[in-house]
Write a protein that binds this DNA or RNA. Structure first.
Lengths: 133, 133
DNA sequence: TCAATTTACAGGTATATACCCGCATCATGA
DNA sequence: TCATGATGCGGGTATATACCTGTAAATTGA
């Protein structure tokens, strides 16, 4: 065991980093995962669950469940597509727009705080290397 | 948005890497998370839930629930500590010992496969930088 | 010694995540 | 046109994870 498990090490820092972002977003009542989903919906709306799952690189059923939470929170509207009755199209509510406006500076702060801790270029290389597995 | 969200990027590669390890371990019926927990119990047994949670950097309740699964799988024995009636001491079963013997070469293979994709030193630096947040 | 505090854990609740199955809808080819 | 197959989604089940609360056991201080 020269090196510890890459996966376990990565999972640890992932949990840790998630906690940092989540704590920053806590006053707004959202998690970093929800922030990310909202931001992606904003950029692609109206967007279907399948499409969003592709973007987020998450299982469709995962996105479906996560979306239901955001829907309950009055942040995402779910309407059946007029073209394809099977599709659910997602759009942001006004409340979500407002929330994103308040969340973005918080996100910027955390990003900068992280950036101060690491070489961004190094980070990118590593994410890239692990990205095409 | 010069840089994408560090947290989301990290969560993505974490999920991806987890899938790689989990797929490799699948024939043995365990996940990389369970492999890690078993290995840590092996090195520290008999170990309490609280102690193990500290080692794994996980919430105590999380370790409690994960352990219950391993217990159901007949991989971990849970016995009350003689000294402290509150403590549950964990030890590996023979079955777990056997399983770890079969899992280790699989783990080594995956580790090497990952190592071929990245600079291990770079990985270490990054994990370190993100580790002390 | 005994009340107050701390510690160890279980269980409730919640999000995040994946896989599988079934159902409804859409598309396609004979 | 109509059977066949592909697609989109919901729900079931399961692990992984955290926070909070309650309970029991241990420790400690007056």
């Amino acid at each position: 065991m020269t090196h510890p498990c890459y996966c376990i090490a990565l999972r640890k820092v992932s949990r840790r980093l998630t906690a940092v972002y989540d704590e920053a977003f806590a006053p707004l009542g959202i998690t970093v995962s929800q922030f990310s989903q909202l931001r992606n919906i904003k950029h692609k709306q109206p967007v279907s669950l399948t499409e969003l799952a592709d973007i987020l690189e998450l299982d469709r059923s995962t996105v479906g469940r996560n979306t239901k939470v955001l829907h309950r929170m009055n942040l995402v509207a779910m309407t059946p597509s007029p073209e394809d009755q099977r599709e659910t199209m997602l759009t942001l509510t006004d409340e979500a727009i407002t929330l994103l406006k308040r969340a973005t500076p918080i996100w910027n702060d955390v990003q900068q705080r992280i950036e101060a801790k690491l070489e961004a270029a190094e980070f990118d290389r590593l994410i890239g290397a692990l990205g095409d597995l």
